[in-house]
Nucleic acid binder design. Structure first.
Length: 662
RNA sequence: GGGCCGGUAGCUCAAUUGGCAGAGCCUUCGGCUCAUAACCGAACUGGUGUAGGUUCAAAUCCUACCCGGCCUACCA
């Protein structure tokens, strides 16, 4: 039995996935990363808990269910099952699968709400605001786009006035900032830590609205202190990380809690980096250990012409290239935290070069030689006499040590690269020692040493690779005449010495073809594939893989487009500083209309009032009105800017006010 | 407008925080025959985005700017 100290415990989570869409590449990536890291820690002998699940409350679910003609419960049962059943297909080794509609979760949410309420950090307040059903939240001025629409969903928000419960998040702002500063690894990679610190520096955090009146939404968890309300979706969802362990009073919670590692995509940074730690603090719990933030997979170079949608189906990739090649590619290719491009061409490149040529071929050639020279049985090892035998061992131990240093720090690409230094080194070792020559010359002892060294190190490669490619690792072990048992491995020791060699006489597989080479078929699609433009919606889950943005067609405007613009000349009557904004003027312009036009213009840091008044300017007269810092602007003054400053557009001579530009 | 991150070989990325710019892929040539047209070796490609500055020494630090991405705001 391996000794398990408290420090060796590891809790890894994926976000719980919102059940309003089918699983896609983003979900698969997050989950596969979590799985690999969980397997790694198990292999390292750490007691590990790996949690994933689905997020099932909120009005979007109610809407989607209605649209599908089913009840919310039926609907979430169906979609949640799609996520759950994907897990074994991707060989995900999660310890539990949490659904926010489960009774165990409702109890924990109520428990924690009550704790925060008792601590005095939840209060009732009336709120009037514009609510976007798509976002499931109230939007402020600054959230709206130029037309007063929700920028993510392109719909006008509804004005709603209601009483709601608020979480006093602002109270914990300074504490959170201090905590992030004191714990450089709390949010990683560093880029996202900076992002969060700048959010916290920007001003006072708003308190968080955590309820919805049942009259408006009853698909949620009832507040323990007011049966007229249900919980706001984030407060509900984040708590899953505690429910999954069994709740705050459970044994698993006391075992695993402060050692939690959350894994999220960058679009849900704020809830996890700001809401969640402050919620935990208010409820009297320690903050989680790390928030690990990854980037997006971008679709590039794609020739998947059959689906212009460009959605990468994880299962289709698995079916075409094999699960382990797919998993390997995802971990090898993306530098954790940054965006990466997904392309089948790159996947095939990795598959052929790294997996087939380097790794697969190594197994193939060594097993074949073992059969030719030793009847397929592990030979008895002799003395390690030659320099290259010592060198290859040094290389191996160094490679494993590097791997073990990088992998748990989420540096998967570099960790695998470190391992591949050894894979390539072993191929070279074969060439340098030339076992076929040793065989011809009857140097059997030396031959046994060489083959034994190869087999022993191949076993180590297999076990190191298991977190990423479990199936392949297990096949490798089978080919090496053994069975893979993660609990019997002591990872640290594997990097310290050659260790227990495979038992002499063990029968090995005669041949190995772990990764057949794949021919990459370039599918020509007659010009550029048309990437689909996804709605840039902000979901609570990894985004749909973004399509490559084609250059927007700004180059050519049809005459009809130009005609839409109503450009007119008018004389500036007055210009006053905007009361609420120090870069804006409120300008009144005579456009030949009964009333002067009021336009808010950002000219204040460029032009004096005296310069403006009396000046004739070009105005976009039919621009949709928009409030800027509370003052309505009914148009736009046209100007040009270069390195020397800003100039106004006007006509070469005076014209009648209101004259149209054509 | 402000902030953060990035820009290194044709491509993807390193460079232990200031110490001789390196890998892999691609391409070309050579070697080998155990192996999956594979493997091994060699070659090839560089004012490290631009211009300055600090330093014995700069991809790395400082200043300004250009390009890309993200965040943010009072450019309508």
């Amino acid at each position: 039995m391996k000794r398990r100290a408290a420090l060796d415990r590891f809790f890894i989570t994926t976000p719980i996935y919102y059940v309003n869409a089918k699983p896609h590449l983003g979900h698969a990536y997050t989950t596969i990363v979590a799985d690999s890291i969980a397997r790694y820690h198990r292999l390292a002998g750490h007691e590990t808990f790996f949690l994933t699940g689905t997020d099932e409350h909120g009005d979007k679910i109610v809407e989607a269910a209605a649209k599908a003609g089913s009840s919310p419960q039926q609907y979430v049962d169906t979609i949640s099952e799609q996520f759950r059943s994907l897990l074994p297909e991707l060989q995900i080794s999660n310890d539990d699968f949490i659904r926010t509609t489960e009774e165990r979760h409702k109890q924990v949410v109520r428990d924690i709400l009550q704790r925060v309420y008792d601590a005095g950090d939840i209060y009732l307040s009336e709120y009037e605001g514009r609510y976007c059903t798509g976002c499931e939240q109230f939007l402020t001025d600054k959230d709206l786009d130029a037309n007063g629409l929700c920028p993510d969903h392109k719909v006008a928000p509804t004005v709603i006035k209601e009483k709601n419960y608020f979480f006093r998040m602002s109270k914990y702002q300074d504490w959170l900032k201090q905590h992030i500063q004191d714990n450089p690894e709390f949010i990683r990679p560093e880029h996202y830590r900076n992002e969060v610190l700048s959010m916290l520096d920007m001003g006072v955090l708003d308190d968080l609205c955590i309820s919805r009146p049942k009259s408006r939404l009853d698909w949620g968890i009832e507040l323990p202190f007011d049966s007229g309300y249900v919980t706001y979706v984030w407060f509900d969802a984040l708590i899953n990380y505690i429910t999954g362990l069994g709740g705050p009073d459970s044994e698993n919670f006391s075992k695993f809690w402060p050692r939690a590692n959350h894994l999220v995509a960058k679009d849900i940074l704020k809830p996890h980096a700001i809401f969640w730690p402050t919620m935990l603090k208010a409820a009297g719990f320690e903050p989680y250990q790390n928030l690990n933030v990854h980037g997006y997979w971008l679709m590039q170079d794609t020739k998947m012409s059959k689906s212009l949608g460009n959605v990468v189906e994880p299962l289709a990739m698995r079916d075409t290239y094999g699960l382990d090649a797919f998993r390997y590619f995802l971990l090898r290719e993306m530098r954790f935290g940054r965006d990466a491009s997904f392309s089948e061409r790159a996947l095939v490149g990795r598959l052929n070069a790294d997996l087939a040529n380097d790794l697969g071929n190594l197994f193939s050639r060594v097993l074949s030689m073992t059969h030719k020279y030793f009847g397929g049985e592990v030979p008895a090892m002799g003395q390690r006499s030659h320099a290259e035998d010592v060198e290859i061992l040094d290389l191996a131990l160094n490679s494993f040590a590097n791997y073990q240093q990088l992998f748990p720090r989420f540096q998967f690409g570099r960790a695998l690269e470190a391992l591949w230094e050894l894979v390539r080194g072993l191929n070279k070792y074969v060439d340098v020692t030339a076992p076929w020559t040793l065989f011809k010359n009857g140097e059997t002892e030396r031959l046994a040493m060489v083959i034994g060294t190869l087999l022993g190190l191949m076993r180590k490669i297999a076990l190191h690779i298991w977190p990423v490619m479990p199936q392949t690792a297990e096949t490798m072990f089978a080919q090496l005449g053994g069975e893979f048992d993660p609990s019997a491995i002591d990872l640290g020791k594997e990097a310290e010495a050659f260790g227990d060699f495979l038992q002499t006489g063990t029968r090995l597989a005669k041949a190995s073809n772990l990764f057949p080479r794949v021919e990459f078929k370039e599918v020509e699609s007659g010009g550029q594939a048309e990437p689909r433009q996804d709605n840039p919606k902000k979901d609570k889950q990894p985004k749909q893989p973004k399509t490559q943005q084609p250059a927007p067609e700004v180059g050519i405007a049809e005459f009809a487009d130009f005609q839409k613009l109503d450009l007119r000349l008018g004389t500036v009557l007055s210009a006053e500083p905007h009361p609420e904004a120090d870069r804006l003027y409120v300008v009144k312009i005579d456009l030949g209309e009964p009333q002067p036009r009021q336009v808010v213009a950002g000219l204040r840091e460029h032009l004096e009032v005296e310069f403006l008044v009396g000046r004739q300017v070009v105005v976009v007269a039919n621009l949709a009105p928009r409030k800027l810092r509370g003052v309505e602007s009914q148009g736009m003054i046209m100007a040009v800017k270069d390195k020397d400053g800003l100039q106004l557009l006007t006509a070469t001579g005076l014209v009648e006010n209101g004259s149209k530009v054509s």
